[in-house]
Computed example of a mutant assay.
Amino acid sequence: MITYPFLKKGAAIGVTAPSSGIPAGLHGLIKLACSRLEQKGYRTVCGDTVWTQKKAKSAPAVKRAAEFNSMMADSEIDIMIPPWGGELLVEILEYIDFENMKTKWVMGYSDTSALLLAITLKTGIATAHGTNLIDLRGEYWDETTAMWETVLSTASGGSVLQHSSPLYQKEWQHDNPSPCVFHLTEETRWKTTSSSTVKISGRLLGGCVDIIRHLIGTPYDDIQSFRRQHISGEPIIWYLENCELGTTDLRRSLVQMKLAGWFDNCSGLLFGRSPANMPVENYTIEDVYQDLADELQIPIVYDIDCGHVPPQVTFINGAFAEVEVTDGKGTVLQIFK
């Protein structure tokens, strides 16, 4: 079975940087995000790693892991939200105390998704693939991002429905601040490789392909044990997003996942919008999706609200989901069972 944390009102948010910390010139952005959350009744507790960044990491791996483990063990901290992602989270996995992990939400995306997936696979504790802390610094949150609170405060046994966003952000405009952080200008359309209507159900697992592919062959990718111990062999819906991979590198990664058994008993695949997906010799991202759909004989939905082209739906690793797409609009019903 899956264990679901619960976000209570007035929760204490632990902010630690298991991957990258914040350079000195950007400290104000994290302080602003913490201030916004405190205005909403939360308490924030920032660790030392948040404020440092050197050689592509916030601190040495042992220090990052120790701070994360300490906050996870602290009964005064209710939820963990890193400031953002980064590059080298994979270094800390061997030092994480999975055996004694308390039940509390860990939420983030990008590099953090490797930690989220590893926690759920090894412990059966649900984790949240959603907004980073730094993107909560706006005067208000768009309706898609704001659902993180509703999703994380859903009780075990309950359910929560999310809709595809009306609009998404085509590109970051850091020199043109928006009251809600994102500049949402482009119409959102969820696309499919098959018919205009898709309905799939199963247990959610996923993250950023760039990083979670590196779990394959390590002690943190035991999908088969997770299937037996926690979801009784139910089908899986994988949600995936691509940060920096060209189409051939993405294709290689997906084939590796398939050969490693990750897509066994998979009812469907969901792919987020991507700033990458650059064609190689006319091999386009649509070709990648179609090749995978033909091989696996399952529906593939793409350009969904997930990842580095915001906003994003809050996906819960381990939750049972019913996903429907009709004429470019999508819904994700997550059931905490």
Rank of each mutant, 00 (worst) to 15 (best):
P23I: 08
S19T: 03
G233T: 10
I81T: 02
S165K: 11
I92H: 01
P311G: 07
D291S: 10
S75W: 01
G246P: 11
T112E: 14
Y239A: 06
I237R: 12
M80Y: 02
W51L: 00
P275C: 08
Q256S: 05
S164W: 12
T192L: 14
Q334P: 03
T154A: 12
P235T: 14
V50R: 00
P18I: 00
K337C: 15
L29D: 03
F6I: 13
L333F: 02
Y289V: 14
A260N: 08
G233E: 09
T103F: 05
Y95I: 02
P18A: 04
R227F: 15
D305V: 09
I335H: 09
N69L: 14
K329F: 11
V181T: 01
A319M: 05
N100Q: 03
W262N: 05
Y168N: 10
E281V: 10
F68A: 00
S35R: 03
K191W: 11
P166G: 08
G85Y: 06
G328T: 01
A128V: 08
T52A: 00
Y289R: 15
D175H: 13
D287R: 07
D294S: 15
E91W: 00
C243T: 06
M101P: 02
I92F: 01
L89Y: 05
A73N: 14
D142Q: 04
C243M: 05
R273S: 12
L117Y: 00
S35E: 06
E38W: 01
L29Q: 06
R251V: 12
T247H: 13
F271Q: 13
R203V: 15
I30D: 01
K54W: 07
V90Q: 11
A61K: 10
S225F: 10
L136N: 09
P299I: 08
E244W: 05
N317S: 04
V313I: 13
V50L: 00
G28W: 10
V198N: 14
G138Y: 03
L121H: 05
I96C: 04
Q312H: 13
K9N: 08
G328A: 03
V50H: 01
D287E: 05
I79A: 03
Y4V: 04
S232N: 14
I237P: 13
L240A: 10
R273V: 12
D287V: 05
A114M: 05
A293P: 14
A24H: 14
G85W: 06
T49F: 02
E139C: 12
G21M: 01
T144H: 08
